[in-house]
Design a binder for these strands. Structure first.
Lengths: 183, 183
DNA sequence: AATCTAATTCGATAAGTATCGAATTAGATA
DNA sequence: TATCTAATTCGATACTTATCGAATTAGATT
């Protein structure tokens, strides 16, 4: 269902001394569950749980009971993940009660949308959040709009339509240019 | 007091959606606490707490209220940290009650020692753990011993002495060669 | 000094995780 | 099938950490 928030899951998976130590062991080469348990003086039960956790997140990989690191996952995490070209959003004037709750529920850690709320107040909150990525005194081609919206969700067409339908953005009657509507 | 366990602290610091999002903002450039709060629709109080956390761990840096990422810390974390040349320890036969507790308290995530227990049972447990890094049927020069011990703690001399004093290792009377004592 | 706002700290409650005994299940061996 | 061991699952309790209202403190402005 989700698309991006692997980073968080990944980091969380590592945020435990024991799991980090397991990763450390695997960094030296493949190992079975019981080998790891032995080496680290941990009960197999716990190693099992940790391995399951790590595997689910994709940090490690299980091949017939032999575990090893998913180098690829780790590399891609280690490399690019921190040089951010994250969505650039500006602030709202208001700071309403449950805006935060809604945003928290619908946003991934990097500011992208987990999903587009199908309708209602939640949709509005999210749209207001997104529209802040647009300047007031500029107008945009559809392509430009899509580029910006893509930082939030792949379904740029849906977002674009919602923004216009809810009066947050407007477009030329011929559909060539968009701008943000002052409120 | 501690030496190494930055990795864990580092990872833990990031293991939160909100903190990750803050890092995301800072990845685009410096920002003040209130700017971040605004951008992310978070209460300043919480942003403050998160920033304190991140700063303490060294992920970010505070210059007169302006925060930015400590690129160096992040890079060094992202780069090398996963290609492990971790201590290579073998298992004990016994699996006593509180051995684990002691090890957990004295070991960093990478298997190195936070500190050397000054004496008593804890010291013994730790020494038994360390001595597993040595084979039974080999003997080592002092240099070799130090190299191995250095994986656990810088004060290799202390470790070496403790190991000998507690009968886990022995040395030639002329002090040139060491070996692990069978028990 | 009085006042206003931003920054920081406290603390109680909620929410989430780790821990670990014990039970269950799966696989192998005889 | 009986039996033994390894693997996996349950679940209750203890620990940590997050959350958020509210109070306090610090800095700036008048």
């Amino acid at each position: 269902m989700n698309e991006q928030p692997e980073i968080l899951a990944f980091v969380k998976a590592m945020a435990s001394a024991e799991r980090l130590r397991i990763v450390g062991v695997l960094a030296r080469g493949s190992a079975t569950q019981s080998e790891i348990a032995e080496q680290l003086h941990l009960p197999v039960r716990d190693v099992f749980n940790h391995l399951s956790f790590l595997a689910e997140v994709g940090v490690i990989h299980d091949t017939d009971g032999v575990y090893d690191l998913d180098e690829k996952a780790i590399e891609s995490f280690a490399r690019g993940q921190f040089e951010g070209k994250r969505p650039s959003y500006e602030a709202h004037q208001e700071e309403p009660e449950d805006v935060r709750k809604v945003l928290k529920n619908f946003l991934n850690a990097d500011g992208s949308l987990k999903q587009i709320p199908p309708q209602g107040n939640k949709l509005l909150i999210v749209l207001n959040f997104i529209v802040d990525a647009f300047a007031f005194d500029a107008n945009y081609t559809e392509k430009e709009v899509n580029t910006i919206l893509r930082r939030f969700h792949i379904d740029t067409a849906a977002l674009r339509r919602y923004l216009v339908d809810n009066g947050l953005m407007a477009r030329e009657s011929d559909g060539t240019r968009y701008w943000r509507v002052k409120r």
